[in-house]
């Protein structure tokens, strides 16, 4: 179980695809469990106009519900079958955004307590220039635009900076490894047994 974390939806998706492709070539299996597999956020985006939007806390609970779906239908079956699965994004990306929006870390640890720990965690660095096209291609973008639409007082630039800071701290504590193309080769290289 390989987690790919980051706050750029397109960068996380691209890294997940390359990891899954390499795993598939090396082992014959390896799929991606992506955000919004349950369709919760797609349906949320289609909600009728005039309804009050979700707060950061409500969005976090919805992300956790989507994650419960992914654990049940993607992650647990793959692991039970002895197959590799790339989960992108997983828990830390959601925590980064929620903490940046002011939610308590202890509460987030509890909410996501049902999800299994990944064997490896990669962190995908955000591109230097954020996409300015307004594309809604990941949880981070969806979370930020939902807060803005809902009138949340958190400044989006501050949200990005704080969530990046959280992911940087994970890297510094070696809880996540910086993702590079070289990591794909390293991960899929046959391991030699040492005596």
């Amino acid at each position: 179980m390989i987690a790919v974390e980051g706050t750029s939806g397109s960068a996380v998706a691209a890294a997940a695809r390359s990891l899954a492709r390499a795993l598939h070539d090396a082992t014959g299996h390896g799929g991606v469990s992506a955000w919004d597999a349950s369709g919760i956020f797609t349906e949320l985006a289609a909600a009728e106009a005039g309804i009050a939007g979700p707060s950061a806390r409500t969005l976090t609970l919805l992300y956790a519900a989507d994650l419960a779906f992914r654990v049940r239908w993607h992650i647990a079956p793959a692991l039970d079958a002895g197959e590799s699965v790339v989960v992108a994004p997983y828990i830390e990306s959601a925590k980064a955004l929620s903490i940046a929006a002011g939610l308590p870390r202890r509460w987030l640890d509890e909410v996501f307590g049902f999800a299994p720990k990944p064997h490896v965690c990669y962190r995908v660095k955000e591109p230097r220039r954020r996409e300015s096209s307004g594309r809604q291609n990941g949880y981070s973008e969806s979370f930020t635009s939902a807060l803005v639409a809902n009138g949340d007082p958190t400044d989006p630039a501050e949200l990005r900076a704080r969530s990046t800071e959280y992911l940087n701290s994970l890297e510094a504590r070696r809880r996540c490894i910086r993702f590079t193309p070289g990591e794909v080769a390293r991960l899929t290289r046959p391991q030699t047994r040492r005596r």
Partner: peptide, 20 residues
């Protein structure tokens, strides 16, 4: 729905009503 999804979706519904 699994019990966890059932629980988390109802918790989201509750939180949204509580706040709004």
């Amino acid at each position: 729905l699994s019990p966890e999804e059932f629980c988390l979706l109802h918790a989201a519904d509750f939180r949204h009503r509580l706040e709004t």
